[in-house]
Simulated scan of single mutants.
Amino acid sequence: MAGLNKYTPIPTEIKLHKKSKVLEISFNDGKTFQLPCEFLRVYSPSAEVRGHGPGDEILQTGKQEVSITHIEPIGHYAIQLNFSDGHNTGLYSWDLLYNYGLNQDAMWQRYLQRLKEAGINHETT
């Protein structure tokens, strides 16, 4: 099974908070992460966001208001998120979501830095 090994924590609950646009995921090791829809959208694991190799990443902009409209389970190892902007091609495996939770702050700062380097103000896009 892709994205799953015997050490991968498994979600015990996945809750979408529509008003705050946050996906809350609780894992069987006791950790709970709150991942904003914008964060999940700009870090989509899809080829159209990640590209086809290192350095191919496509900087996502203007996603502050994006929300998740539907969550589709994929086997016992992932979910597919449908976003309000029509994006729905990324598969979010349990280990990917867990790693996103652990590294969210650093990843978000890196995203804001990439926007800045591209001359884009996050608040006004």
Rank of each mutant, 00 (worst) to 15 (best):
G53H: 05
F83S: 08
Q64D: 10
N82Y: 08
I58S: 07
T8C: 08
G3F: 10
L4K: 09
G55C: 06
T12H: 09
E24A: 07
H87Q: 15
T69L: 09
I79K: 02
K21W: 09
G62L: 04
W94P: 05
L112R: 07
S67F: 07
L112E: 13
I25K: 09
K19V: 10
G53N: 04
E57M: 03
I14R: 10
H52S: 12
G53F: 01
L4E: 00
E48P: 00
L4N: 04
E65Q: 14
S20D: 15
S26V: 02
A78T: 08
Q104E: 15
Y7Q: 12
I74V: 15
H17R: 01
P54I: 04
I14A: 11
Q34T: 02
G75D: 10
N121P: 14
R110I: 04
S26P: 02
Y77I: 11
K116F: 06
G62H: 03
G119E: 01
Y111G: 02
T12Q: 15
E117P: 05
G3M: 06
L16K: 12
A2P: 11
F39P: 03
I10T: 12
L91V: 04
G51V: 05
W108I: 06
T12F: 09
T124L: 08
R41E: 03
A118T: 00
V22S: 06
E72V: 13
M107Y: 12
G75W: 02
H76C: 09
T61M: 11
W94N: 07
H87C: 01
Q113S: 08
T12S: 08
H17N: 13
Y98K: 07
I25S: 05
K15G: 06
N88I: 07
T69A: 08
F39C: 03
E57R: 05
R50M: 03
G119C: 07
H87G: 05
G119Y: 01
N103W: 14
L40S: 03
N5H: 11
A78I: 00
E24Y: 07
F39G: 01
Y43S: 00
N88F: 10
L96F: 05
E13A: 13
L91I: 08
E48Y: 14
D56F: 00
